[in-house]
Write a protein that binds this DNA or RNA. Sequence first.
DNA 1: TCTGGGGTCCTAGGACCC
DNA 2: TCTGGGGTCCTAGGACCC
Length: 425
Amino acid sequence: MGRIFALVDCNNFYASCERVFNPALERRPIVVLSNNDGCVIARSNEAKALGISMGAPFFKVRRIVERHDVAVFSSNYALYGDMSRRVMAVLAGLVPRLEVYSIDEAFLDLRGLGAQELSELGRHIRRTVRQWTGIPVSVGIAPSKTLAKAANALAKRDLLRQGVCDLCDPQAREAALAHLAVEEIWGIGARSGERLRARGIATARQLRDSDPAAMRRHFGLVMERIIWELRGVSCLALTDIRPPRQQIITSRSFGVRVTSYRDLAEAISHFASRAAEKLRSQGDNAQALQVFVRTSPFNTGEPFYQNAATLLLPMPTQDTSLLIRHALLGLRQIYRRGYRYQKAGIMLLDLVPALGAQATLFAAGERETAKSQALMHAMDEINRRMGSGALRFAAEGTRQRWQGTAARCSPAYTTRWEDLPLVRA
DNA sequence: TCTGGGGTCCTAGGACCC
DNA sequence: TCTGGGGTCCTAGGACCC
């Protein structure tokens, strides 16, 4: 039996989250900014209509923002993460199988739901999520994931479809794919888009009708798979069990340029500590790590420098102090005086499950490991209860001058008692 | 002055082996 | 002067995603 996928995608997710708790924002243009209030990472429809583009540096759109009274927010991941969990919980209650694909998207398996009318089911999903969470979503339905993505794009674009688009019928697909630019297809970015156009392929329909074998030779396996998926042959299954991450990255742009080794070392220690937390919550040990630093890659009239150091750890570990120590060894290798650093970070690599980890050959080492595990566990527990960063390593510093500002952050409405909205009757 | 963060997968090419 | 062929493994970099 053929498959039927639905892709449920939250509309302008971060902007919509801000609106849920602040109804005065209804119909007002909204943008949400990245770390350091650096660039635009989410826009409401009204902000899109003003010509504010995705990823635009904030200082370049400031004029538009002021002229049109755009509401501006620093990103509030405590809020967005919690709202995401709520949306996914509602979806999980509506269908037996789903894959949470990103913070604002999920693929659903619609087979065997006895739905006469898939569009009606889509509208039901949409109504329910809206009513129970306040978040508007669009629903695309089709026999492959790539087509479900395409259907979703059309559901958003075409107001007549009222947020739901069903492309299961091959007839319906003809016109739809002819109106979809090749860059709008899932998996085709600017690079491939350009190369496809050079070969005279500009729409999803033209790509679908191209020769899979020849396209594989020119573009690789991924392109061939896209073509089959556009033809309605499902090549990408629903993966409802998420495999553990293979690498963990913690990195930041700095609020101000950093020049001293000392400040850089503080930042790197802080990143190592955060990465170690993620590592432990995943139940893994790391066997290697990489530290990287760089100056600003943009035209600043100053010399560009970037470098990275990769180190093998003496044993697989999830111990923060060991990770900090080795991260700093790496930093010493790549730090050069005289540069104004803009960004740095750490990657944990070669992750392996911590359970049943190879014990060290030495009994003393084993005792050390047990001690360190108890310490890390206690630390995580305290930080969970008292708030992240309540207990931290001295190496992370107290001034943290490199930290950026998030001046326009909304309250953590759903995850912090003091920030709960008040309702007056 | 001010330009995000965190991931995955695929491929090509080099090292190495027999 | 002539200088194999094929396999595996690893890594760096590209492309893409949200």
